Amino acid sequence: MNEPKYKRVVLKLSGEALAGGNEYGISQETLNSIAKQVEQVKDAGVDVAIVVGGGNIWRGVAGSAKGMDRATADYMGMLATVINSLALQDALENHGVDTRVQTAIEMRQIAEPYIRRKSIRHIEKGRVVIFAAGTGNPYFSTDTTAALRAAEVEAEVILMAKKVDGVFDSDPVQNPGAKMYKELSYIEVLNKGLGVMDSTAASLCMDNKIPLIVFNLNQEGNILKAVMGKAIGTYVGR
């Protein structure tokens, strides 16, 4: 096997991705597929940390739009990410991958509190660390969490797993003729409003020179391909 291009990565999984083909909930088949792919990446000698969303269970923005207090809705979304993180931890450990969940909101009975030095130590010992409960603050997305944690643990790249092949100039579901970008700068992402990640997360990645690879999670082996530097999806950097 060739040497991986990246030695330490943050994998960003949307909550919707964990639902598989369902509208909500958690697909065990999808969890097992992700766990198998992460196991392959670990076997290649790559450090892995994971940030997972909660949109398959609850979306704070949606709750706010229906009249709920925004902060309350966002805290509920953070709790949804903890549920997803525990499910993912279970799937990974069933594949023999040593895993720790760290939460930005303390809940010691089920997970460790997030401590930067401790998370780095886990990663150095070969464990996968799953960062749950976002940043612990309302009004911040899990995209921002991924950018923040990647900077904190000195990851070389963020792997953003989606349900589509990459970044398009319009919604590929509604527009079959949508054009996929092979490479973009963060300035282009911000100026064109492409919706790869929110502006706070994109700015954080740009300021810390952390590249982003957007790819299709549903194609088996894509996580390993991204780590090895294969040309898949859309590369966002510069």
Score class of each variant (00 low, 15 high):
N216Y: 13
M160S: 06
S199R: 13
P113D: 08
V173Y: 01
G126M: 15
I110H: 08
K230R: 14
A155S: 13
R121A: 11
F140A: 10
R108Y: 11
D143N: 07
G229F: 05
A150G: 14
G193D: 12
L190A: 08
G229E: 11
K163L: 09
I115P: 05
K192F: 11
N191K: 14
N222D: 06
Q219E: 15
K179A: 00
D198E: 03
V97L: 01
D169W: 12
T200Y: 15
V153H: 07
V189D: 01
H122W: 10
G96W: 10
I210N: 05
L224W: 08
T99M: 06
K225T: 08
Y114F: 15
I223A: 02
F131V: 00
G166K: 04
E152P: 06
N216G: 05
I210C: 09
S170V: 09
K162Y: 07
I130C: 02
K225C: 03
R127M: 12
G221H: 06
Q174V: 05
E106A: 15
I187P: 00
I130W: 08
P138L: 01
D98Y: 09
V236W: 04
Y235D: 03
G221K: 01
K118W: 12
M228P: 01
K192D: 03
V157H: 08
A132R: 03
D98W: 02
L184P: 01
P172D: 00
I110S: 06
A201S: 14
D169Y: 09
A111C: 12
A104Q: 14
P113M: 05
I110F: 14
K125A: 12
D165M: 07
C205A: 13
G96P: 06
V153W: 04
L148H: 10
I115W: 11
M107Y: 15
G177Y: 15
P138C: 04
K209C: 00
I232L: 08
G237V: 07
L204C: 03
V214L: 06
T135S: 15
C205E: 05
V236G: 05
M107H: 14
H122A: 05
P172W: 01
K230I: 03
V129Y: 13
L204S: 06
E112G: 02
I158G: 07
L194R: 04
A201V: 06
D171L: 09
E188D: 14
K225W: 06
V214S: 02
E220V: 05
T145G: 10
D171T: 12
L224D: 06
H122L: 01
I123D: 03
T99W: 07
N137F: 10
V129S: 11
G134H: 12
R117T: 12
R108T: 11
V97F: 00
R117Y: 12
S170Y: 05
K182E: 14
G177Q: 15
M228Y: 10
E156T: 03
K182A: 12
K118Q: 13
G195L: 08
A151M: 15
F215M: 09
S119Y: 06
G195D: 11
